[in-house]
Design a protein around this nucleic acid. Structure first.
Length: 266
DNA sequence: ATGCCGTGGAAACCACGA
């Protein structure tokens, strides 16, 4: 089973890229962030024509998250992160699919820091930590996938020294991300590629993609009940080079069939 | 370090992103 996350940066403006990539990569489940579309303007029909069902939580102009599945039934558990009823940003949706809980999240960017936006990011991270702790206590297979807007370590950024005062790389959000891992989550891509420089984002500015001036911002955190089933992971970085590309590339993991795990011996 | 790129929406510019 192949599960992907892709910050699409405008699901309508980016529809040709999305459909091209879905056809090429054929993921079973896709978490999308930054739809930048209100609930009623999600392009359901072309996505269905491509063979996918979808659930989503839209928002006018900003944010917005969706989960697509290729034939697998999905049940929405919640479409907002618990902990702050006044938070109206559409940044979280969670489904049950194939006896797994899959969350699609779009963490606040937090710049400029310090400031209100940074405070919002840190509060969101605290809420995520609390909810993640609850999920892990359930001892079931959970995948938290999405755009975390956190560069975990120096290995995840082309030039660490120039990002020290940026909200993506400051000590507080990085510490919060480490706190999450300490709860028992596995950073799937880093786990399988402990030494490798892997990026999922390249800025539109300064020919960042051509220079490979990238960041790793899109992550899969796996609960112990699914971490053992992880078989491979990657980033479809060539998609970043397509015409009208998002500034993020799709990232993906493959997990062994949860219902036949005893048969998969490597 | 950011004038720079790109999206969506309102208005022919602005907010926002990372």
């Amino acid at each position: 089973m192949k599960i992907a996350t892709f910050n699409i940066n405008g699901v309508n403006g980016r529809l040709p890229v999305l459909l091209r990539w879905l056809k090429e990569a054929g993921p079973d489940v896709v978490c999308l962030q930054e739809l930048k579309a209100p609930q009623e303007k999600f392009p359901l029909k072309p996505i269905q024509d491509a063979g996918y069902e979808a659930v989503w939580h839209g928002q006018k102009s900003w944010n917005g998250v969706a989960i697509l599945s290729k034939g697998l039934p999905m049940e929405v558990v919640r479409s907002e992160l618990p902990g702050d009823k006044k938070d109206l940003h559409s940044r979280y949706i969670e489904v049950i699919v194939e006896n797994m809980l899959i969350a699609c999240l779009y963490l606040p960017n937090g710049n400029p820091a310090p400031g209100e936006k940074f405070d919002y990011k840190m509060k969101w991270l605290q809420r995520l930590k609390k909810h993640a702790k609850y999920l892990i206590s359930e001892e079931v297979p959970v995948i938290l996938a999405g755009d975390y807007n956190v560069i975990p370590t120096e290995l995840d950024v082309y030039k660490p020294e120039s990002w020290l005062d940026n909200a993506l790389f400051m000590p507080e959000p990085r510490r919060a991300y480490q706190d999450l891992l300490k709860q028992g989550w596995t950073d799937a891509i880093r786990h399988l590629h402990p030494e490798e420089r892997i990026y999922t984002f390249w800025d539109y500015l300064y020919k960042a993609y051509q220079r490979d001036a990238g960041l790793r911002l899109d992550h899969f955190l796996l609960s112990p009940q699914v971490a053992g089933l992880l078989s491979s992971s990657g980033v479809d970085r060539h998609v970043r080079g397509w015409e009208k590309a998002s500034d993020h590339a799709p990232a993906w993991i493959e997990i062994k069939d949860i219902n036949h795990q005893q048969e998969t011996i490597v």
